[in-house]
């Protein structure tokens, strides 16, 4: 439990050689500052959010079928071998931190939020979070509170919806200019 003093500490898990520290959503900036100053994680490598809407919804596949029975027309396809573990909320935001010193220690700082819940921005801690957070806002609709310039970055300014959300269908983009004369 190397990270239990991190502000807003919720849980910590090590799997496949990577440590994930989950903190309270509202205290992520404090946690980031603490990890930077007390643990020496001076380099923010990446900010990655994920949408877990419909997580595990594919059900269990195979000849045993799921609770709803087995679909004979698509045997075994698309389903899972076992249901994945539940997730606390719809979105996760993961900050991948790196320390530029011997051994290259890394840690994943993670917060969970539902649609519309703001996550404090870490731009004051690492300026590089500027575009990284803008990208996650643009594609997944995570609202980073206190970001100096939270506008779309990859999609155009008047785009509707957030393409990387699970309820945004592939091929669902509006046909542009169709109403123009």
């Amino acid at each position: 439990m190397a990270y239990e003093h991190v502000p807003g500490y919720v849980s910590e898990e090590t799997s496949r050689g990577e440590t994930t520290v989950v903190v309270e959503r509202a205290r992520v900036r404090e946690a980031a500052e603490y990890l930077r100053d007390a643990h020496g994680f001076n380099f923010l490598s990446d900010v990655a959010a994920a949408d877990y809407l419909g997580w595990g919804g594919a059900g269990v596949a195979g000849s045993w079928g799921s609770a709803g029975g087995r679909d004979g027309s698509s045997p075994g396809s698309g389903g899972l071998a076992r249901l994945p573990g539940p997730k606390p909320k719809r979105f996760s935001v993961s900050y991948h931190l790196l320390s530029l010193r011997r051994g290259a220690p890394r840690v994943r700082l993670q917060v969970w939020c539902d649609d519309g819940e703001p996550v404090p921005s870490v731009v004051p801690v690492w300026p590089t979070a500027d575009w990284l957070e803008r990208e996650q806002y643009d594609l997944l609709g995570i609202h980073f509170e206190g970001h100096p310039n939270l506008v779309r970055i990859l999609m155009s300014e008047d785009w509707e919806g957030h393409p990387l959300r699970k309820d945004y269908p592939i091929g669902g983009e509006p046909v542009r200019f169709s109403e123009a004369e």
Partner: peptide, 15 residues
Amino acid sequence: LGCYLVSDGGPRPWR
């Protein structure tokens, strides 16, 4: 260059 990969146990990457 970094790659964040999430799998739900299925044949397609979740994220």
